[in-house]
Amino acid sequence: MKRKVPLRKCILTNEMHPKKDLLRIVVNKENEVFVDATGKKNGRGSYVVKDLDKVNKARGKKVLESRLGFDSETLEPVYDEIIRLIYREDIPKR
Rank of each mutant, 00 (worst) to 15 (best):
K2Y: 09
R3S: 11
R3W: 11
R3C: 04
R3M: 11
R3F: 11
R3I: 10
K4C: 01
V5E: 10
L7K: 09
L7V: 04
K9S: 08
K9T: 14
I11M: 00
I11D: 00
L12Q: 02
L12G: 01
L12Y: 06
N14Q: 14
N14T: 13
N14I: 08
E15V: 06
M16F: 12
H17I: 12
H17V: 14
P18D: 13
K19P: 03
K19Y: 08
K20A: 14
K20N: 15
K20Q: 15
D21I: 14
L22A: 08
L22Y: 02
L23Q: 03
L23R: 02
R24N: 07
I25C: 02
I25H: 00
V26S: 00
V26H: 01
V26C: 01
V26W: 00
V27A: 08
V27Y: 00
K29M: 01
K29G: 04
K29L: 04
E30I: 03
E30N: 10
E30A: 03
E32Q: 03
V33A: 00
V33P: 01
V33D: 02
F34C: 01
F34V: 01
V35P: 11
V35M: 10
D36T: 11
D36L: 06
D36Y: 06
D36N: 05
A37K: 13
T38W: 08
T38E: 12
T38Q: 12
G39Y: 03
G39P: 02
G39N: 12
K40H: 14
K40A: 12
K41R: 15
K41I: 07
N42R: 15
G45Q: 05
G45H: 05
Y47I: 13
Y47R: 09
V48N: 06
V48Q: 05
V49I: 15
K50Y: 12
D51I: 14
D51G: 13
D51K: 14
L52H: 10
L52T: 15
L52F: 10
V55R: 03
V55H: 09
V55N: 11
N56H: 13
N56K: 15
N56G: 13
K57Q: 14
A58C: 07
R59Q: 14
G60L: 04
K61Y: 06
K62Q: 13
V63L: 01
V63N: 01
E65R: 00
S66I: 12
S66R: 15
L68M: 11
L68A: 09
G69E: 10
G69F: 00
F70L: 00
F70K: 02
D71N: 15
D71G: 08
S72L: 06
S72G: 06
E73V: 03
T74L: 00
T74S: 04
T74P: 00
L75D: 03
E76K: 12
E76D: 08
E76T: 07
E76V: 00
E76F: 07
E76S: 08
P77D: 07
P77G: 09
V78Q: 10
Y79W: 02
E81F: 03
E81Q: 13
I82W: 05
I82N: 10
I83D: 07
L85S: 07
I86W: 04
I86G: 02
I86S: 04
I86P: 02
Y87Q: 10
R88W: 06
R88L: 13
E89K: 02
E89W: 01
D90Q: 14
P92M: 09
P92H: 07
P92W: 05
P92G: 06
K93I: 12
K93L: 12
K93V: 11
R94N: 09
R94I: 12
